[in-house]
Design a protein around this nucleic acid. Structure first.
Lengths: 213, 213
DNA sequence: GCAAATTAATGATTTATTCAAG
DNA sequence: CTTGAATAAATCATTAATTTGC
């Protein structure tokens, strides 16, 4: 549940992503966690946003970077630029394995300077990279008993504000649960489906059986 | 792990649901829970909209609701009310297995009438329920060969706008990828750790060692 | 009758797999 | 074949429901 998180409607709210829409789907991030108050209204409504919005983030110049088309065409999947990968790997080597929402947000912001990117891409990158390093390691361990027990030198990198890395365990300890936060997002349906014309049908929610089990 | 949750709301929030039951405990009680708060807030506020305000909606009467106490903010985990579960099960029985973002949003909105809830709770509920039904089925299949091959009647449920149930496959076909939704999540530090006082430390991002192994 | 201790459920995360774009 | 994206399985953790001792 998976994991998810949130917002709304007002125009111009979510920032993320520039316009677009097209075929793509968007997501929504959000949801912070809450510990305390949640504001009342939830924010849930927000989930989806269709569209467009204002963007934000990358302030100025989108640096142009390496390749990457941005225009976005049909939007498909994220295609990281060299710079983005370099930064991510640096972070990974630095010990980061499962960044929290805040960290993801900041990393995304940084990487946004080099090309289009969303928080989920960062999230997935770490998940995949971690998993694949693990496989790779497992595979190679079979082949040889060499151990490179030495841990790599630690480098200090600074990314904007308050981002810190947790301690690094060479191995990446699974299950180290602490607290967490979330964000949820969702993609939007394909919607290519047939009629969608009716915006608010106002149907009723559930029909029957109120049973509560 | 804990986390999130929260509740609170102003008095008169939860509403709906009047009556209730009391003694029944059957399956899930209702309950309110809450503890105090961890606090922390992230700022994802950016994400979310802070609403701040005490707005709220629940108009009128603070009905007494099912119980669910809100008082405490401490958020913990979501505790579904009878009504919420009933609705979710109805949808599940109707064939819904992996609602998309839009659907989650709408379901959340509806369920919000019966108690506090967030989109992620809905998302998780479907994940867990689906998985646990699967286990249950698997377990029982071992015991007996009886088959209850009959599929439950299909019910068509409509939720507000454009929400339709997808076809139902008795079994729930895995990997039927279409679009999806996501979730993001992450941990927040325990923070109980020693100093955390500095909000913006601008720490460095990662410790060193570029070597990743 | 209660409340601590135990157990059963089930909400929330994390890890493992799989699918598919490029 | 590499790797971004998603889903499912495995776990962890917290709360409801029971049980047990006084």
């Amino acid at each position: 549940m998976g994991n998810m998180k949130v917002h709304h409607l007002a125009p111009g709210f979510w920032e993320h992503e520039p316009s677009l829409s097209l075929g793509c789907k968007r997501l929504r991030p959000l949801a912070p966690k809450l510990h305390h108050l949640p504001s009342s209204s939830f924010d849930l409504k927000s989930f989806i946003r269709p569209e467009s919005g204002p963007r934000k983030l990358a302030p100025s110049h989108p640096n142009r970077l390496s390749h990457q088309v941005e225009t976005q065409p049909g939007g498909t999947r994220w295609n990281p630029t060299q710079e983005q990968i370099g930064i991510l790997e640096t972070l990974y080597r630095g010990g980061m394995r499962t960044p929290n929402a805040q960290q993801i947000e900041q990393i995304t912001e940084q990487l946004g300077k080099y090309g289009k990117i969303e928080g989920k891409n960062v999230f997935y990158w770490f998940q995949n990279h971690k998993a694949r390093e693990r496989q790779k390691m497992k595979r190679s361990s079979l082949g040889l008993g060499h151990s490179a027990r030495i841990s790599p030198p630690v480098t200090t990198i600074t990314l904007d504000t308050r981002m810190e890395i947790m301690e690094r365990s060479d191995e990446d300890s699974p299950y180290k649960r602490k607290c967490k936060s979330w964000s949820f997002e969702y993609l939007e349906e394909e919607s290519r489906s047939p009629c969608k014309e009716e915006e608010n049908r106002t149907l009723e929610l559930f029909p029957l059986h109120p049973e509560g089990r």
